[in-house]
Computed example of a mutant assay.
Amino acid sequence: MRLVLASASPARLSVLRGAGVKPMVRVSGVDEDALTASLGPSAAPETVVTELARAKASAVAETFADTTSDLVIVGCDSMLSIGGELHGKPHSVEVARQRWQTMAGASGVLLTGHAVLRVTDGVVVAQAAAHSSTVVHFATPSSADLEAYLGSGEPLQVAGAFTLDGLGGWFVDRIEGDPSSVIGIGLPLVRTLLTRVGTSLAELWGAPDS
């Protein structure tokens, strides 16, 4: 049994490796903005992140259609709900700065969708999906610290324009919930989803290196 991480996120990969799993990495190539738009403005935030995670896992599953392997594919997607809006990656300094004007001294909910697909001989034989929610309480960084953080480039490519396990951790006062899900992949939830598709951590811990 091998775990395939359907994500290019080094943070998610680090979490899994630190938890004793040696995943293969396959990037899905899913157009997140297009899929989010297709769900419509009335879609619940929980639905958006879960469907994005499912789409990523499904896209990667298709790349194993001609294999005879026994795999579990994990897709994830995170967004920050704050001020009545759902935020993904800002991609630019200007957008990240605007996000932090809302986030500073406030609280938001980091939502992470998870989808686990079990693939046997190229066929998806079981799947499970769910989301986790963690409340994040943000500090108010000084202007100099915020500009230095924006200049580092770190917040531009992460959901909500912050990290918990990197430079952004300086500006998180506390969280209520699972810290691993804030980093990008919730270990307790993934464990539950693995059980639902008929596998276990014991099988994954014994998998060889990729």
Rank of each mutant, 00 (worst) to 15 (best):
1 M>D: 07
1 M>L: 12
3 L>Q: 04
3 L>V: 01
4 V>Q: 09
6 A>K: 11
7 S>D: 05
8 A>V: 03
9 S>P: 15
9 S>Q: 08
10 P>L: 00
12 R>G: 06
13 L>P: 13
13 L>I: 01
15 V>Q: 08
17 R>L: 02
20 G>I: 01
20 G>S: 03
21 V>D: 06
22 K>G: 01
23 P>Y: 00
23 P>I: 00
23 P>E: 00
29 G>E: 09
30 V>Q: 07
32 E>C: 09
32 E>T: 05
32 E>A: 03
32 E>Q: 08
33 D>P: 13
33 D>G: 12
34 A>T: 06
35 L>Q: 07
35 L>R: 10
38 S>L: 04
40 G>P: 15
43 A>N: 11
45 P>V: 00
45 P>W: 01
48 V>C: 11
50 T>G: 04
51 E>K: 15
52 L>V: 05
54 R>H: 12
55 A>F: 07
58 S>V: 09
59 A>M: 06
62 E>K: 15
63 T>D: 02
65 A>H: 09
65 A>V: 01
66 D>Q: 14
73 I>V: 14
74 V>E: 04
75 G>L: 09
76 C>H: 11
78 S>I: 07
78 S>Q: 15
78 S>K: 13
79 M>T: 00
81 S>G: 03
83 G>M: 04
84 G>C: 10
86 L>R: 09
87 H>V: 03
93 V>D: 01
93 V>R: 14
95 V>Y: 13
96 A>C: 09
97 R>C: 04
97 R>E: 14
99 R>Q: 14
99 R>F: 14
100 W>H: 11
100 W>L: 10
100 W>E: 09
101 Q>G: 14
101 Q>W: 00
102 T>P: 14
103 M>T: 00
104 A>V: 06
106 A>M: 07
107 S>W: 05
108 G>T: 03
108 G>I: 02
109 V>T: 14
109 V>S: 10
109 V>E: 11
110 L>N: 12
116 V>R: 14
117 L>F: 07
118 R>W: 07
119 V>I: 03
121 D>E: 12
121 D>H: 12
122 G>V: 05
124 V>P: 15
127 Q>G: 15
129 A>N: 12
130 A>F: 05
131 H>N: 08
132 S>D: 15
134 T>M: 04
134 T>C: 07
137 H>N: 13
137 H>R: 14
138 F>R: 13
140 T>L: 02
142 S>Y: 02
144 A>G: 06
146 L>D: 05
147 E>K: 10
150 L>C: 08
151 G>Y: 02
152 S>W: 08
152 S>V: 04
154 E>K: 12
155 P>I: 00
156 L>R: 13
157 Q>K: 09
158 V>W: 10
158 V>R: 09
159 A>E: 03
161 A>M: 09
164 L>Q: 07
164 L>E: 02
167 L>Q: 11
167 L>A: 08
170 W>I: 00
170 W>S: 11
172 V>I: 15
180 S>V: 06
181 S>D: 05
182 V>S: 10
182 V>I: 10
185 I>Q: 11
185 I>A: 08
188 P>M: 01
189 L>D: 01
190 V>G: 09
191 R>V: 03
192 T>D: 13
195 T>H: 11
197 V>D: 01
197 V>G: 04
199 T>A: 03
201 L>A: 06
202 A>G: 05
203 E>R: 15
207 A>K: 08
209 D>Y: 01
